[in-house]
Structures are given as structure tokens and as C-alpha cells.
């Protein structure tokens, strides 16, 4: 189904670096095919900007198939644009109409400082992972597969949580810039499995501590994160983290 090519107006956040003050700049996107992805539309605009000697718009992207989580764009008031369950690279221009004005902003949050234009620094997520998002394994011979039996339900729930790509849309969508959905998905994917269970108390305490130190906001249970998550990570993970944190805080047998 072809709508014919579209002409659009883009209002894009331009910011030189972390310390400078940004502002919106208006661009014309002409002759955009409805079959293009949102990122390909940006490629076309950038090509035109480069050939006319202007500075292109900086934006993050990598796999362009919805699994890397890099394409952080807040489009017309929603992370990853108007469609649910997708990343920006999976958003097609047929979701827009000829003549539309599209406002594109970077993720907003104290813990996600802007690097340039639409690219933000999400290393706060990496530091949360370093604080406990792993399983400690002694090196040595690899164990036989399936020597630890895992109930199907647990494996499925853990896998659903592990689908999180760490894109930060949950933080971007949350009115408080809370990272609870991301952290709870990472806590859950490990603590649901026998290999991760043994360290679950230290993990949840350390990861939540790091999350708070990074300056993310608090969870108000609006559910915006779950609604905007490209991988549809469930709020059940947040409740699981809440009760694990409560249990670990009061029963951890240290100091």
C-alpha cells in the first residue's frame, strides 16, 4: 500500500554537548517514503544536511532490528513514537501523514545526560548492572547441560524479564524518570533461576542502591513504563523487586 511520498516538518532538539543549552530546530523532510523506518527518514534528512554543508542531527542507532535498544527518540510526546511494543527503528513513516509536524526530543532525566542532540548517556544503566546484575561463576569445566532442572513457568517468566534491551524507554516514559522497570527486569531474570537465586539478596540491595545513587526518580505505579516498553516488560517485575528488596533488607545476614 503506497501513500505516495510525504513532506514533513521536523522539530528536533539540538544540543552541542552535555554542558551547553539546547533548543529546538526546524527541518523540512521532503519526499519521504511511507515504507521507510523513522531512522531511515533521519538518514535522508542528514544526507541532505551534509550535502548542503550543514551539521547533521546526532542520534543513536545500531542494530536497526529492535534488539539493541540504542534508538532513543521521544517522538510526539512518547518514547519510540506512537506505536506500542516497538523501538524507533521499527517505526515506519506510514504511521504519519503528509504535512505532519513531528517533535523529536532526547530521553529526559538527570541520570541520562544529553551527549549531543538526541544521543543520551545511559551508562548509569551499566553501573547498575555492574553493581549486581550478574551471576558469580567459578571458572573450571563447563557443567553438563540440564543438570539443574528449572520449572517451565520459571524459565518463561525469567525469559520474559530477560527480553529487556536496556533502551531506557521506561525512564523516558515515567513522569518521575524512575528506572524501576529496567532494574526489576534485570533483578527478576536472575533471581527467578536457580543459578541466580543464591545471590539474590546482595544483588537486589546493591542494584537498588546504585539505582538511587544515579539519581533516578521514585516509582508512582502509573504503569507508563510497561505501556511504552518495546519488549512489554511487566509491572509484576517491579512488585517482585519490591518484595525481594524488603526481604533482603531485613533478613540479610551481614554487618
Amino acid at each position: 500500500m503506497s501513500h505516495g511520498n510525504m513532506n514533513l516538518t521536523l522539530k528536533v532538539w539540538k544540543q552541542k554537548n552535555k554542558d551547553s543549552k539546547g533548543r529546538f530546530e526546524t527541518y523540512d523532510a521532503k519526499g519521504i517514503s511511507p515504507d521507510m523506518s523513522f531512522l531511515e527518514m533521519f538518514d535522508v534528512v542528514n544526507e541532505q544536511l551534509i550535502s548542503s554543508g550543514k551539521e547533521p542531527i546526532a542520534f543513536d542507532h545500531d542494530c536497526r532490528e529492535g534488539i539493541c535498544g540504542m534508538c532513543s527518540m521521544y517522538i510526539n510526546g512518547r518514547p519510540h513514537g506512537p506505536k506500542g511494543g516497538i523501538t524507533t527503528c521499527q517505526l515506519h513513516m506510514r504511521s504519519f501523514n503528509n504535512g505532519d509536524t513531528i517533535v523529536v526530543e532526547p530521553w529526559r532525566g538527570a541520570a541520562f545526560p544529553v551527549i549531543k542532540d538526541l544521543a543520551v548517556d545511559r551508562s548509569s544503566f551499566d553501573r547498575i548492572m555492574s553493581a549486581g546484575g550478574f551471576v558469580s561463576v567459578n571458572t573450571g569445566n563447563a557443567k553438563d547441560a540440564n543438570n539443574i532442572l528449572i520449572p517451565k513457568d520459571d524459565a518463561d517468566t525469567a525469559f520474559d524479564a530477560a527480553a529487556c534491551i536496556g533502551c531506557g524507554a521506561c525512564v523516558a516514559a515515567c513522569k518521575n524518570s524512575s528506572a524501576m522497570l529496567f532494574v526489576s527486569a534485570k533483578v527478576s531474570q536472575l533471581s527467578l533461576l536457580p543459578q541466580g537465586k543464591v545471590e539474590k539478596q546482595d544483588r537486589v540491595l546493591n542494584m537498588v542502591k546504585q539505582m538511587d545513587e544515579e539519581g533516578f526518580g521514585n516509582c508512582t505505579n502509573t504503569g507508563a513504563c510497561e505501556a511504552e516498553c518495546p519488549k512489554s516488560i511487566s509491572l509484576e517485575n517491579i512488585a517482585r523487586m519490591n518484595r525481594e528488596y524488603l526481604g533482603a533488607s531485613f533478613t540479610q545476614n551481614k554487618k
Binding site: 510526539n76 510526546g77 506512537p82 517533535v103 526530543e105 538527570a110 524518570s177 539519581g215 508512582t220
Partner: peptide, 23 residues
Amino acid sequence: NRKARPIGYAVVKGSANSSWYSR
């Protein structure tokens, strides 16, 4: 929570993902 987002969005479509009273 205010401190967690020093610079806000120009366009927010909250109604797409949550109820007004939860916000």
C-alpha cells in the same frame, strides 16, 4: 522526582500510557 528530570519534555502524551489521576 522533580530533581530526577531537570529539563522536561516540550511535548508529553501521558494519556497514551497512563491515567491522568495516577499522574
